[in-house]
């Protein structure tokens, strides 16, 4: 198994000079390629902060994070931008598609940033939209898509750059149950068929039920990290 994420002893402290609040407190996290992991915990437990740290959107106050062997805590902000572009896919709770671009352009935008040629972009867009089942919505702007459709486009966008892993922050939080179920089906299928690593934070029990590993965070600390027996029975780990 190839290690994708290796976080050592990471902490993130707010109000360090007054009353320190540990959003993430001495967390060790190790993720192998192909894992489908849920990060759960109550509001304010540090899920989003931990995802931001692993995604290189924020820097830890202590500890190191290795992505594919690269210590991202030592990268400059410009190096981090480039690193994120080539290694990490993001799915946000509120979709965050660029409203002036069509669904296709939103996905293609990332590939353009990677300087992928037009033909390869076209082929990848077709493949991704087929996978998310939105081939007929290529030229629609986000405002014309439902929440579920927008989040599926966001997943396609996250995968556009062929990342090492995808971080998803509450991906189903703004979706109805059918849309959430459809999105989960797509994520599970991509994980299973294309061995894409997913790490997502969630409150949603349906999502937790589909995860193969569940990490529980409380007050910035991992209090449990266990394989989801029920899921693993259905989908044994590679």
């Amino acid at each position: 198994m190839k290690t994708v994420i290796d976080a050592h002893n990471i902490s993130k402290v707010y109000n360090r000079k007054t009353i320190p609040v540990y959003a993430v407190n001495n967390v060790h996290l190790h993720l192998e390629r192909g894992e489908f992991t849920a990060l759960v915990g109550p509001s304010g437990s540090g899920k989003t902060t931990l995802l931001n740290l692993i995604g290189g959107l924020d820097k830890p106050d202590e500890g190191n994070i290795f992505i594919n062997g690269v210590d991202i805590t030592n990268l400059s902000s410009n190096e981090l931008i480039n690193f994120r572009l080539r290694n990490i896919g993001f799915v946000f709770q509120s979709f965050n598609l660029i409203p002036v671009l069509t669904a296709k352009e939103n996905v293609e935008f990332i590939m353009q940033l990677q300087k992928m040629n037009k033909r390869d972009r076209g082929e990848r867009v077709d493949k991704l939209f087929k996978e998310i089942g939105l081939e007929d919505k290529l030229n629609e702007r986000p405002s014309k898509l439902s929440g579920g459709q927008q989040q599926r486009v966001a997943v396609a966008r996250a995968l556009a750059s062929k990342p090492q892993f995808v971080l998803a922050d509450e991906p189903t939080a703004n979706l109805d149950s059918i849309a959430a179920s459809n999105l989960l089906d797509i994520m599970v299928r991509l994980n299973k068929e294309e061995n894409i690593t997913f790490l997502f934070s969630t409150h949603d029990q349906r999502v937790i039920d589909r995860a193969r590993r569940v990490i529980t965070l409380v007050d910035g600390k991992i209090i449990s990290d266990s394989a989801n027996v029920a899921t693993n029975t259905m989908h044994p780990t590679n």
């Binding site: 931008i81 480039n82 994120r84 572009l85 993001f90 965050n96 660029i98």
Partner: peptide, 16 residues
């Protein structure tokens, strides 16, 4: 702000 932040998060360089 949010949209630009998201673009930076996804890998859009400051030059762009």
């Amino acid at each position: 702000t949010r949209e630009i932040g998201m673009m930076i998060a996804l890998g859009t360089t400051k030059v762009k």
